[in-house]
């Protein structure tokens, strides 16, 4: 078997004309690129005196991580407050119509958000 570089196809180009060779189509699909939006949420100068949102996704480990984070942050920033939000369903955005009012109410109450993904 000839030595073919799978990235450059070097070594495969001289095979034309041989009945035992197969010229093959790509199974890999085209996809539209999703443009990356920039970060817009302003950063805080100090966490003291601020209300920190702790978002738990629906995985069980997430709701175990956030209380530890709260306790640790509270030690460093005694003046910080914390507010929890739990995701409503697997793979369903909080911006969906059934969730958005509850989510927006919560977002308006907090100064910054930490999302813990329980995976």
């Amino acid at each position: 078997m000839r030595n073919i570089d799978v990235d450059t196809l070097k070594g495969a180009a001289d095979m034309s004309g041989d009945d035992a060779l197969f010229e093959v189509l790509s199974p890999w699909a085209e996809a539209d690129l999703v443009p990356m939006e920039g970060l817009t949420a302003p950063r805080l100068n100090d966490l003291n005196g601020k209300k920190i949102g702790l978002f738990c996704n629906i995985k069980q480990a997430s709701s175990r991580i956030q209380p530890v984070l709260e306790r640790r942050l509270k030690k460093r920033y005694p003046g910080a407050e914390f507010s929890y939000y739990r995701g409503q369903a697997f793979s369903v955005s909080e911006l969906e119509p059934q969730n958005i009012d509850k989510f927006n109410t919560w977002i308006d109450e907090v100064d910054t958000v930490i999302l813990a993904i329980g995976d």
Binding site: M1, R2, I4, L9, A12, A13, M15, S16, A20, L21, F22, E23, V24, L25, S26, W28, E30, A31, L33, P35, M36, E37, G38, L39, T40, P42, R43, L44, N45, D46, L47, I52, T112, I114
Partner: peptide
């Protein structure tokens, strides 16, 4: 949470577009 946003974070450069060949290879079965 506290480090100011960089220019690149606020305005990320566009991603490279994909250009894929329809025919990708020629060779034996193996």
């Amino acid at each position: 949470l506290t480090r100011p946003l960089t220019e690149q974070e606020q305005n990320p450069p566009p991603m490279d577009t994909e250009e894929k060949s329809r025919i990708v290879f020629k060779g034996s079965l193996e």
